[in-house]
Design a protein around this nucleic acid. Structure first.
Lengths: 184, 184
DNA sequence: TGGGTCATGTAACCTGTTACATGATTAG
DNA sequence: CTAATCATGTAACAGGTTACATGACCCA
């Protein structure tokens, strides 16, 4: 259950509303964890019931009222417990629709598969330019966070993402060449 | 919904029982898609209700009776439709607990984080040797499948996996060196 | 006057996880 | 005698997806 821990991690930097968490999520964690707005609101309620968070209503006159969440001591303990927890091997085995399609592509012609690979290469390129944007947000958030060390790890995570997308793009290019060779 | 399509893909090679599908899944698709035994049985029932599969009971005297599933024409159509479908960008954005932990690791000491990275490196190494095994199964299954082209794509998928795990291992080693440098 | 931002959710459904249940045969 | 293999699931719960609902303010 990592969405909960992602939210705990963000709230550990400071109080935020569901709306702000949703934006922060989409600007930073999105490339390695995707969450719907509705899911974020639901998880926040559950986490409050578990005692990991507390909320206060902030009344605003010009804008809708908002619910500001803060992390509790229990929430902090849960976060640090999770941070040092040893995961199992399947934490590194991700689910990939791309590989599922590729695996069963023997049914299709080589031409069709080359064209599929080209489409996926474009998707990886798009994902790469998304991660590249994370750097800009990092700059912005660094100012707002006490622990200056944090930004180092934000950048490391983004760097892993870049390296992954780059390797994927290169792998696809090599594979297209191989398939083009076989076709001749 | 890719578990369903994975099962369709396997059944497209020939009739199988839930038990056999579970094993085939764990021997081949597991490194890019994980599924529990109970989930496989549930999905098979659903798919039969949708008309993608039909089943027949095979009575055995020495062993428990079994339910043999075959793909229907509807199932084949669904599989080929899915194979050429254009996915969205989030097909290449996987969920990663590893990156979630790394992202929030500014809370911990550099020593703790180096030790975490070493543990993850071991996991990636274990995953790499798992994928390496896929090659052996490929050899075995190649004999059983009509379309000899299929095995090419099984190997491509495994090759992508290897390349991903290798890059991850190298990235972690580089990053450990960087962090050790900062510590001094 | 139309679209974007601010702000909160609910409901229904689908997919994934965990725990449990049963029982025969066969190989070491 | 005991552990693995064969073979099937159900039930409950957790987590993720999709669709829908509401409404004010602000800028072009």
């Amino acid at each position: 259950m990592s969405l909960k821990h992602g939210l705990l991690g963000l709230l550990n930097y400071g109080k935020m509303t569901g709306y702000e968490l949703d934006k922060a999520f989409k600007e930073s964690l999105n490339f390695f964890w995707q969450a719907q707005t509705s899911q974020i609101y639901r998880e926040l309620s559950t986490m409050e019931k578990s005692g990991w968070l507390v909320s206060e209503i902030v009344i605003q006159s010009d804008k809708p009222n908002k619910k500001l969440y803060s992390i509790t001591e229990m929430g902090e303990k849960e976060l640090s417990r999770w941070l040092v927890e040893n995961g199992s091997i399947d934490e590194v085995q991700a689910r990939s629709i791309f590989l599922m399609r590729l695996f069963f592509s023997g049914e299709k012609s080589v031409e069709q598969n080359i064209s599929m690979l080209k489409k996926y290469r474009e998707k990886f390129e798009a994902a790469l330019s998304e991660v590249a944007k994370v750097g800009a947000y990092t700059e912005h958030y660094r100012q707002l966070v006490d622990n200056k060390q944090s930004a180092v790890y934000w950048e490391l995570a983004a760097d892993f993402g870049k390296s992954y997308y780059l390797t994927s793009i290169e792998w696809i290019s090599r594979t297209i060449k191989r398939l083009e060779g076989e076709r001749v």
